[in-house]
Amino acid sequence: MNKEKLKLKIIYVATIAAMIVVLTLFAGFFAPNDPYATSAEGIRMAPSFSYPFGTDNLGRCVFSRVLYGGRTTIGMTFLLVAIAFVIGTFVGMICGYFGGWLDRFLMRIADVTLAFPQMVIAIAVAGILGGGLWGVLLALGITMWVSFARLARSHTYSLKSQPYISAAILSGKSDFYILTKHILPNILAPLLTNALTQIGVTMIGISGLSFLGIGVQAPMAEWGQMIAEARAYIQIAPWAVLFPALAIAITIIVFNYLGDLIMDYREL
């Protein structure tokens, strides 16, 4: 595929991604109803004009809840990826640049973390912490920094032997200067691409934990938690499961696709 076509495609997909973010971020503006208002008369109503995605078991507007739930899921995802990005990049750069015992020590910790499936650790940690927003962040964050750290380390390591780094050292520049002015800007692109692909994984993680009941707690709207709640009456009101599930699927596909496209673009 040629580069211009790919660029156009990236712009399209990025626009969709931006739309999803804006829609959920300003959920208060776009939501037609209060996501937490229950109504005894309007239980499990099919989609209509005033309730586009129908209502759930407590008569709450599913559309509004999907928007507000997106704010929780996407907001937490971004926060978590950002924290993992910063910590992982910092650790990776230090390891790759200085090497030595600190590098060996931190990378062995990373290896041990990688030895367990991410979701298993997350379930264990979230279970011990008893759920809740911060429990989920910690449970998923414990393993997430590793991918950033390894990536940052390998890129830093290969950059370190570049002549322009040697030239900067010979110019009397400090390690801090070299790391921030020469290395960080040059390893940022692959790290940001990794961040994009991590968004999908993290979303599945957050929604998955909430679905299992050890993530975000009711009545707070969150996609996984909404599915878990509504699955009991899926035969009567399938829309209460369908729409949050669709929201998860679409969001993850869009962000993963965007990450893949950008990765392809960078390789061209």
Partner: peptide, 16 residues
């Protein structure tokens, strides 16, 4: 670096 400087084989890679 105060008294000597190096010039490298790969001129392009010598600059950020």
């Amino acid at each position: 670096g105060r008294f000597l400087q190096m010039i490298f084989q790969d001129a392009y890679a010598s600059f950020d």
